[in-house]
C-alpha cells in the first residue's frame, strides 16, 4: 500500500472532471434562477415527460437497440472467424480492424456522407449498372449504418478476446461425446463467450444511445436523439435546466442498464473488457 500516492492524480482528475460536473448537472436540473435568487423546481423533469420528448427517448432507444442488434449479428461471426485463424493471421486481421479506429471518427462519418449522397459514389455506381438512384442519406437507415460502422469494433473485440481464451479441450471433449457442430456452439462456445457478448452489447449500446454527431450528419438534423436534445439545450437554446434534466435521465438509464449487465457478468465470471 506504499504506492497509494500514485492514485492522487487520478483522484484529483476524477473530482474536477467527473464528480464536479455531475454535481453541477444535478444542481442545474432541479433549480431555477431569477433576479430574486435560486429556487427548487421539478418543472424540467416534468417537461421531459411530455409526449414529444418521450418520443425522442423512444427513438433513441429504438435506433440504439437496432444498431446493437446488427452489430451483434455481424460481430459474432466476425469474432469467430478471427479467433479461428492461426496466431499470425489473427494478429494481422485484428490490426486491420483497429487501424480505422485510429482515424478521427468525425472524418470517417463525413466520408460516409460523400459515399451516400445523391450524386455520391454509391449512386454513381448504381448508375453505371443502369439502376435508378436511391436516397441513402438523411434517413433512419443512414443513422443506423453510421452507428454500426463506428461501433462494430467495440462488439467484435470483446467477443474475440473471450473466444480465444476458451479451452480447446472443452470443444474436443464435446465432440468426442458425440455433439455435432451446432450443439457444440449452442452448449459450449456460446455460453462461454457470454461475458464478451454482454460487454460488447454495453460498449455499443452506450455510445449509440447518446451519440449526437451521427444523427446530425447522416440524418440531416431530422432525427433528434436524446444526445441532440441535450446538445441543443446547452449550445443553441441556452436552457441549461432542461438540458441538465435530460442528462440526468440519460445518466440514470445508463446506470440501470449497466447494473443489469453487471449482474449477469458476475454470474458468468467476467472476462470482458471491463
Amino acid at each position: 500500500m506504499k504506492l497509494k500516492w500514485i492514485s492522487y492524480p487520478y483522484i484529483i482528475w476524477m473530482v474536477i472532471f467527473i464528480l464536479l460536473p455531475i454535481f453541477l448537472i444535478l444542481f442545474y436540473s432541479v433549480t431555477y434562477s431569477t433576479n430574486e435568487g435560486i429556487g427548487f423546481t421539478l418543472e424540467y423533469f416534468q417537461r421531459f415527460f411530455e409526449p414529444i420528448y418521450i418520443n425522442v427517448l423512444w427513438r433513441s432507444l429504438k435506433l440504439a437497440l437496432t444498431s446493437t442488434g446488427v452489430c451483434l449479428l455481424m460481430g459474432y461471426p466476425m469474432a469467430m472467424i478471427l479467433a479461428g485463424k492461426d496466431i499470425k493471421k489473427r494478429n494481422v486481421m485484428v490490426l486491420l480492424f483497429v487501424i480505422p479506429m485510429w482515424m478521427n471518427f468525425l472524418l470517417r462519418t463525413y466520408a460516409w456522407m460523400t459515399l451516400l449522397e445523391r450524386n455520391g459514389i454509391l449512386n454513381s455506381f448504381l448508375g453505371l449498372l443502369g439502376l435508378s438512384h436511391m436516397d441513402f442519406l438523411y434517413n433512419e437507415g443512414a443513422v443506423i449504418l453510421g452507428m454500426v460502422y463506428n461501433f462494430l469494433p467495440f462488439m467484435v473485440l470483446p467477443i474475440y478476446s473471450v473466444l480465444i481464451k476458451i479451452d480447446k479441450s472443452l470443444i474436443e471433449a464435446a465432440g468426442d461425446l458425440g455433439a455435432n457442430v451446432p450443439t457444440i456452439f449452442r452448449k459450449v462456445i456460446f455460453p462461454l463467450s457470454l461475458p464478451g457478448v454482454l460487454s460488447g452489447i454495453t460498449m455499443v449500446f452506450m455510445p449509440a444511445v447518446t451519440t449526437f454527431v451521427i444523427p446530425r450528419l447522416l440524418g440531416g438534423g431530422q432525427f433528434t436523439l436524446i444526445g441532440n436534445l441535450i446538445e441543443q439545450q446547452f449550445l443553441f437554446v441556452g436552457d441549461w435546466g432542461f438540458g441538465s434534466a435530460v442528462s440526468v435521465i440519460m445518466l440514470l438509464l445508463i446506470l440501470i442498464s449497466m447494473g443489469i449487465m453487471g449482474k449477469y457478468e458476475k454470474e458468468q465470471e467476467g472476462g470482458g473488457l471491463w
Binding site: 414529444i52 431530422q222 433528434t224 441543443q232 439545450q233 443553441f236
Partner: peptide, 8 residues
C-alpha cells in the same frame, strides 16, 4: 418551438 420542431 424550434426544439419541438426538431424533436418531432
Amino acid at each position: 418551438i424550434w426544439t419541438e420542431v426538431k424533436a418531432k
